[in-house]
Design a protein around this nucleic acid. Structure first.
Length: 483
RNA sequence: GGGAGUGUAGCUCAGUCGGUAGAGCAACGGCCUUUUAAGCCGUAGGUCCUGGGUUCGAGUCCCAGCACUCUCACCA
């Protein structure tokens, strides 16, 4: 790019136009342009009975129709598009410069607001300001940018070449804002906890490792904020939440990006039933606000997000879709062999988990709370009082994806320490270590609490019908492009 | 990491049986004061992802590599 030989013919042509613009004494990169109105506002203020109104817009030229002494531009800004009419009569003095405008340039235009013969609201410009010259050829106007790779690598082009992409990220932003407003109005307190941790806890996942030079120590990018947020429960923050990134050093897929955004919240004196109501209420609020129809299209699925959502126990679903009784380990192992799961070296509870994943999860299309997981799968969860083999935990599935995970938080330091020990057994080769300070915190006394985690990216996928997590993350991780 | 697919002009895509590379849009030149993916006439534009191989001859067939997509594995 920096090499003269590498500059394309198109870029050279545009560069030459830029030089000609400079010769007219015009700064091709503009500066402050005062108070442009949004395209939508301009269209809204148009009145058939008042042709004297003026309007002022700024944006990128996405379409250009040159009729000779008359040019129509379609300008795109944050709100939409507005047509600008440029006539030689009105712009006689600027006409040489007007003729140099091309697709992709960012301009400001002001003039009288009117309508064309065909009824398009148009700013008939009597003044044009070049605000930024576009030196590279924009994508094709009709099909937009379609190459998936390039769309992710050059999101800055994708966003204005494909309006539905912009729209999706606007909705994502509005979803996050709504979640914040909802939680804040419910009395939750927003915090930020460490992204760089000396012990990567709160989940079972491979962490990324980084290094602090001055302290000469390795640090982990967090895999979950859980253990820090619970420390805040100990500190007396009774309703607390964080919306932030987690990092997991694992494979990529349509549902997995190495960094992803998680909402985690904790509420003292609550339990997982309270979390279930909160989850259903919060997501339903978002559905109401952002989905025109509670029946949404997601990939090849139609999902009905209407309430109430099904609540079914782990054992019940295993029976329904796997055909196995959770207490009949022989039949579960038989089923595992049918599913070609190599069960011989697995613990009972692991085999059960595998069979559950293989038989149940693909059937969980409409929102389903899977409740009461086998306790050994839940080291941070309080067990059920009436049946300690199970833990007070649920996962919410929508569209075959795990969207949320919640439980009644374990607050007994002795049980927690024992669970950590069991979890670490046989994982000596992994990075996992005991978070002793967390045990210390629990010893000071943590109120019993409900805790909830919601994967924001996946939630946005469902609410906006995006089949891939890469479509809801502005800059998903890719290998670097070759030169 | 395994399997399948894709990679051709700036962009979106064709390219038959192996025989000198095609279209639309964009660009460049010309005409045009009410267009809507404006229109009409003309011009130019190619490392067919990269490197090998087979062949008289490869965009096309074979091998290897790279990137992306899907899928499986991994994944509380």
């Amino acid at each position: 790019m920096t090499n003269a030989e590498d500059i394309s013919r198109f870029e050279q042509q545009r560069q030459e136009k830029l030089e000609r613009i400079k010769e007219f004494g015009i700064d091709p990169y503009g500066g402050r342009y005062e108070e442009p109105e949004s395209a939508v506002d301009v269209k809204n203020k148009f009145r058939e009975d008042d042709q004297s109104l003026r309007a002022k817009s700024a944006g990128r030229i996405v379409l250009l129709r040159d009729i000779g002494k008359l040019i129509f531009l379609t300008l795109r800004d944050r709100s939409g598009t507005i047509q600008i009419g440029l006539s030689k009569k009105l712009l006689a003095e600027q006409w040489d410069i007007v003729k140099l405008l091309e697709l992709g340039d960012i301009i400001g235009a002001s003039g009288q607001l009117g309508k064309t013969k065909t009824g398009e609201i148009t700013i008939w410009a009597d003044d044009i300001t070049l605000l930024s010259k576009c030196l590279l050829q924009p994508p094709e106007k009709f099909h937009g940018l379609a190459d998936v790779d390039q769309r992710y690598r050059q999101r800055y082009v994708d966003l204005w070449a494909n309006p539905d992409v912009m729209e999706r990220f606007k909705i994502r932003s509005a979803i996050v804002t709504t979640i914040r407003e909802f939680l804040t109005s419910e009395g939750f307190f927003e915090v930020e906890t460490p992204m760089m941790q000396t012990v990567a806890g709160g989940a079972a996942a491979k962490p990324f490792i980084t290094h602090h030079n001055t302290l000469d120590m390795d640090l982990f990018l967090r895999i979950a904020p859980e253990l820090f947020l619970k420390r805040l429960l100990v500190g007396g923050m009774e309703k607390v939440f964080e919306i932030n990134r987690n990092f997991r050093n694992e494979g990529l897929s349509r549902q997995h990006n190495p960094e992803f955004t998680m909402l985690e919240l904790y509420q003292a004196y609550a339990d997982y039933n309270v979390m279930m109501d909160l989850t259903e209420g919060l997501i339903s609020l978002l559905v109401e606000k952002f989905c025109p129809d509670p029946k949404v299209q997601f990939a090849d699925l139609t999902i009905d997000l209407s309430r109430p959502w099904r609540r079914a126990s782990y054992a019940e679903l295993l029976k329904e879709f796997g055909g196995c009784d959770i207490d009949d380990i022989k039949s579960i192992r038989k089923k595992a062999r049918e599913l070609e799961i190599n069960e011989s070296n697995m613990d009972d509870v692991i085999v059960t988990g595998e069979v559950f994943e293989a038989t149940v999860e693909d059937n969980l299309i409409d929102p389903t709370f899977v409740i009461d997981y086998p306790a050994p799968l839940c080291p941070l969860t309080k067990r059920k009082k009436d049946n300690p083999r199970y833990a007070e935990r649920f996962e919410l599935f929508i569209g075959k994806m795990e969207l949320a995970n919640a439980y009644t938080e374990l607050n007994d330091p002795a049980v927690q320490e024992e669970n950590f020990r069991l979890q670490l057994r046989g994982q000596e080769e992994s990075m996992a270590t005991m978070d002793k300070d967390f045990i210390t915190a629990l010893k000071y006394g943590m109120p019993s609490a409900g805790g909830l985690g919601i994967g924001i990216d996946r939630l946005v996928m469902v609410l906006t019908g995006a089949a891939s997590i890469r479509d809801v993350i502005l800059f998903p991780l890719l290998r670097p492009a070759r030169d």
